[in-house]
């Protein structure tokens, strides 16, 4: 008993140190990888980590949103149009469009909050498709089918990717910490209570639809932030980055990492973006690598990649135990 307590205490101390170490390593990566392409992939990873983690924030309230990439698109197109047509600085359009995305999300979340489970998923899916169609129908304002070009850059004049790298690393860290604090605050507890049983939650006085809408607002704010940041980094937008399939990929990032754990979406995003890059030489065949990763997780790791250490540990103790048994006999 005593020993267990002490190891737990040690783990409490080592955890923050490990995270700080990881951040330092990630911050030093550009020193080892000078290739702009690798830096570009890492920047995208940061952006999609924000999207994936914020997706999970909505999920913990018991809603499964299938419009998350579309909300990323809303943030992206709002920022693009505000800077391109109204001449606003990216430093204003990024927070502004995140806020507006959150507002739109909550406005839509209100009627949707009475849909349950699968019907919510389907309703949001249709909404997401509708958003894409509206962007297509926007003509020269949104660039329609051909996409929007000539969007002002966040850091004009820099050719190097490194400033962007640190900007998005910072943005991702801030978003992760904020969403972590929300999840493990009272708000997060109430959200999880609603997801467990909406009847019980409302009987103890939790305003169910209010919290559901709040979760959508928070999720949409951060995904809008990711979308707007992406806009001023990429400077070119195309609708297909935000369609139904894009949402489904976000869902994959979250599920493959493990939807029941905060770290799941982060790990899942990293794995699904980085690993296939090692197989770029396969060209047309490279999607098979992604499919293989997904297949392995589906069949062997029901709780996602985060359960891997736990699985290895229990396998090892099992082996040790069987050894003991065979010794005894």
């Amino acid at each position: 008993m005593n020993r267990r307590l002490s190891t737990r205490g040690r783990r409490e101390l080592t955890k923050p140190a490990v995270y700080a170490g990881l951040v330092v390593i990630v911050a030093l990566l550009p020193l080892f990888f000078g290739s702009p392409y690798i830096q570009h992939m890492l920047i995208l990873t940061f952006i999609y980590i924000i999207a994936a983690v914020s997706f999970r924030t909505i999920v913990i309230s018991g809603q499964f949103p299938l419009a998350h990439a579309a909300f990323m698109g809303i943030g992206a197109y709002l920022a693009a149009m505000a800077s391109k047509w109204l001449g606003l600085s990216p430093w204003i359009t990024i927070p502004l469009s995140a806020l507006v995305t959150a507002g739109i999300g909550m406005l839509i979340g209100y009627p949707f909050s009475r849909l349950r489970a699968l019907y919510y998923a389907m309703g949001s899916l249709f909404f997401g498709i509708g958003v894409i169609q509206i962007i297509y129908a926007g003509g020269s304002w949104t660039g329609g089918y051909s996409g929007l070009t000539g969007i002002p850059a966040l850091l004009p004049g820099t050719i190097s990717k490194i400033p962007y790298y640190y900007f998005f690393l910072g943005l991702a860290l801030v978003s992760i910490i904020a969403l972590y604090r929300i999840e493990f605050s009272r708000i997060g507890t109430n959200l999880k209570a609603i997801a467990q049983s909406h009847v019980v939650a409302s009987s103890v006085g939790i305003n169910e639809s209010g919290y559901r809408i709040l979760a959508v607002g928070v999720g949409c704010f951060f995904v809008g932030l990711a979308g707007a940041g992406y806009t001023h980094y990429n400077m070119v937008l195309s609708c297909s980055s935000f369609n139904f399939m894009a949402t489904l990929w976000l869902v994959m990032y979250v599920l493959i990492g493990g939807i029941n754990s905060f770290a799941g979406p982060i790990i899942g995003t990293i794995i699904l973006i980085i690993i296939p890059e090692f197989f770029r030489d396969l060209k047309m065949f490279s999607p098979f690598v992604t499919a293989a990763i997904l297949g392995i997780v589906v069949y062997l790791m029901p709780q996602g990649l985060v359960s891997l250490p736990q699985m290895v540990r229990s396998r090892l103790t099992e082996r040790r135990n069987t050894k003991k048994v065979s010794h005894a006999s």
Binding site: P111, L115, R116, Y119, G123, F126, I129, G130, Q133, A137
Partner: peptide
């Protein structure tokens, strides 16, 4: 074109909200 798709979706979303 796209406007007709958007209209169709809007109609469906409204239908879904009326009868989940």
């Amino acid at each position: 074109g796209a406007a007709s798709n958007a209209t169709a979706i809007a109609i469906l979303v409204v239908l879904l909200l009326i009868r989940p």
